[in-house]
Nucleic acid binder design. Structure first.
Lengths: 233, 233
DNA sequence: ATAAAAACATAACAAATGTTATATTTTTAT
DNA sequence: ATAAAAATATAACATTTGTTATGTTTTTAT
């Protein structure tokens, strides 16, 4: 059975790790640094692709809008993640939008430069396409959770996923998202989310400081989810 | 704005349509016919990929199992669809399982043969990778529906999608799925699904014969979903 | 530093969905 | 053709989630 976290992680921070140090040098020399302000878009649905990004600092949400206009967030990117490459394979447009959740520093590789890199470094193309396959499985897993789990379980699962993803890069390891964004990840309203958070607080599962959520008792979460010990490693 | 149905359709029946008639001949000569019995698997999660399939006759469900073992179905394939190719790009394993819903006739292309075809016909590789990108967007749309819509709306949307997909190949155009499978698509229990179906019957939106569901009044469905006329074309 | 705006917390009530139980219909195997 | 098994329909009740409303805290802009 697969590791729990890898079922929900794009693993897009490892994409350049397959390269030799020589090849890495070529790739990193192709990058140009960009500053992206909180609230602005790295790319948007239906837009023509311009290149790919690697996050040096900050977080971004990937989302689509439903019929009714509500954002559905299906991924939060953090430091190290590479993103924006789907649309570069096969002359497509972006399938979704990506917005900075805080002021960000990113490295950008322009489309033409990236396509040249793919040609020059055979391992790169295979790695990226392989990862798109993996990401496909991640979305299928997200579908499964949204379709089969009730609100508390969806919240519990996403708290584990988000804490795991953030703690790699933020020392304190808390989950710092607006209630609206968190609600738009787990598929509910901010009010219903609030009720579940209160339950978790009352049961000692989490603590909240300002809006930052800290997981205090993972065992209780595993119990809630009926996950056997050992599965989470 | 994109066509409604294309947002939820893999469009994997068009993959060979980009080829010249000469190239098509090569591809179709590489196929071997297979008979697959109802209930057996074309491929399964974690399995090593063997090749790709094109459906000549019959339907198949693509699904994953959640923690609790319940199937989550995220796609129903029908006649003409090509499937099983994700795992062939980049030495992966299957991310999901695919089971025949009735006795099927399929054309099979073995892995090595298919990879050779990809090399020999450059347009083919681009087309397949482009389609994987499109399918990624389809899964994101499914996530949005599951996260944001209530049961009746999810049912309504999936009835439209399924009728549209089936009517291409079955004259009567009804939706013939077990209640369990349909429930495992829209993310509910067969009992709750039954209640919604009864409501739809009482309101004259659908008719049911044996287990086959016929849509009788699409306008009522559009109304239910707040979809403007013209959007569905 | 302060006022205004935005985000958050919480409760009460309404509506939707889950669950359990039972009866009926349809399919399958012999 | 018939009995057994599987699938379906439906209802009653329990639980979960959505919604509306109000007050408080936090952030933002000046």
């Amino acid at each position: 059975m697969k590791n729990f976290y890898s079922q929900f992680d794009f693993q897009s921070e490892l994409l350049f790790e397959v390269l030799t140090s020589e090849e890495k040098k070529i790739v990193y020399n192709s990058m140009e640094p960009l500053i992206i302000k909180k609230g602005s878009l790295l790319f948007y649905e239906e837009g023509v692709p311009t290149g790919i990004f690697q996050i040096k600092k900050g977080k971004a949400k990937k989302f689509k809008r439903g019929f009714s206009g509500t954002e559905q967030i299906f991924y939060i990117y953090t430091t190290g993640d590479v993103l924006g490459y789907h649309a570069l394979f096969g002359e497509e447009r972006y399938q979704d939008s990506c917005e900075a959740l805080e002021d960000m520093e990113v490295n950008f590789i322009a489309k033409d430069v990236f396509l040249k890199l793919l040609q020059d470094i055979p391992a790169l193309q295979r790695t990226f396409i392989k990862n798109i396959g993996h990401e496909f499985g991640v979305l299928a897993n997200i579908i499964t959770v949204l379709a089969q789990k009730n609100l508390n379980a969806r919240l519990a699962i996403n708290l584990l996923i988000l804490e795991n993803r953030f703690q790699k890069h933020y020392k304190e390891g808390g989950i710092d998202l607006t209630r609206e964004d968190l609600a738009n990840i787990i598929g509910t309203s901010p009010e219903s989310l609030g009720r579940s958070l209160k339950q978790f607080k009352d049961e000692g599962i989490i603590e909240v400081d300002k809006r930052i959520i800290y997981i205090k008792n993972k065992n209780q979460i595993f119990q809630l989810l009926n996950i056997e010990k050992g599965y989470m490693n």
